[in-house]
Design a binder for these strands. Sequence first.
DNA 1: CCGGATCCGAATCGATACTG
DNA 2: CAGTATCGATTCGGATCCGG
Lengths: 229, 229
Amino acid sequence: MAARSYGQYCGVTRAVELVGERWALLIIRDLLVGPRRYTDLKQGLPRIPTNILSTRLKELQEGGVVRRVPLARCGLVYELTPYGRALEPLMLELGRWGFQTMGEPAEGDIVTADSLTMALRTAFRADRAVGTCLDIELHVGDVALRARVRDGILSVAQLAPPAPPVGGALPGGEAEAVIVAGPGIRRLIGGEITAGEAIAQDIAAVVRGAEEALERFAILFRIERIAVP
Amino acid sequence: MAARSYGQYCGVTRAVELVGERWALLIIRDLLVGPRRYTDLKQGLPRIPTNILSTRLKELQEGGVVRRVPLARCGLVYELTPYGRALEPLMLELGRWGFQTMGEPAEGDIVTADSLTMALRTAFRADRAVGTCLDIELHVGDVALRARVRDGILSVAQLAPPAPPVGGALPGGEAEAVIVAGPGIRRLIGGEITAGEAIAQDIAAVVRGAEEALERFAILFRIERIAVP
DNA sequence: CCGGATCCGAATCGATACTG
DNA sequence: CAGTATCGATTCGGATCCGG
């Protein structure tokens, strides 16, 4: 049960022993979006065997990363401890790093609400958001999010699939635009194409509102290519 | 051979598929210090099975993280690609995060030259180094490093065990102080004790030079406790 | 439906031995 | 020095089952 030790006395080693087992970081990614029930996690990670999910949650609890909270409104949820939440900057860095070499989706690859939410957080450029607002619905596959940027702050709520009970509060009113995109949206975020090209190539469509909203999207959500040899 | 897929189209997932396998991040940690031969890596990771090291190096090459370079001076070395080196900030974050909950070393835990080097980089406070210099030898167990802070820049060279051929250049001259410490040095870096207390409790000793150097060490190398529930 | 526990074949890991 | 080969011990993955 205890994580197999690497036999070194070192911070990196300790970290990898805590969160380096298979699936652990993806569980944490989803929990960074909000507390989740066992079943929510299982649906957000469709390929995880249930016994592995169970084992990881126990290990993460033992490591002080996750905690199990009985909630009046909706039963039992898992949430990150403050120590676990301290992984957020690291997770964003990891997402940015991996984004560089994503390529095309493999057959069967899916996009979940939690992974898309974290992808938006990963790509969000607070430095460009000082004077720019945005309030859109973003649809990718079966997932629909409401993303709002205001006062330099990004907030994301999940519209579909029906958000877990403990999701973020939905903003009132209607979004200024509804964007429907495919996985190719990655190329827009990566700066390989412009908003206009994304529309022209059917990578994204603005089905309601002004197409100009997609241009603001491309400004606010952008991952710079560092170096790919 | 190909990393088992998690079935998601997401940056974090891609990253974990590239560097999330067992031992991979520790290999990268050591390579962040400098290029290493196969045998150097094996010595720096004493508990890694040789077939796993071999497999990981192949996978990391295939992922564009590591590259194999035949070097005139010393044969064959592995080094990080630019994409692999882009993991450095992430690795430092990981080290800082893990440091928080390190506790006492387990029986058999060792400290290697590369792990201690990365620990120093992890703990280094560039923000405090603008007006402060330091040039010490640091001995922990069998490991001896020469650490220099000058102009806000940290450089670390390995004195013992004999550095791999491709290590950093050794600075000329003598260090201003020689510090001998045990694993308890963690408590100094963590801010649990002062330099004076570290000496009084025999956690560290200044065997040559002024004891005041240890106070500067404690200022320049420090990991703040974030939140441990 | 929720929150797991159990069982079993397949793949991986770890330890040791061996080779060019 | 730089790995490959082998083999038992673990872990993972997939499916099923079960109590609430």
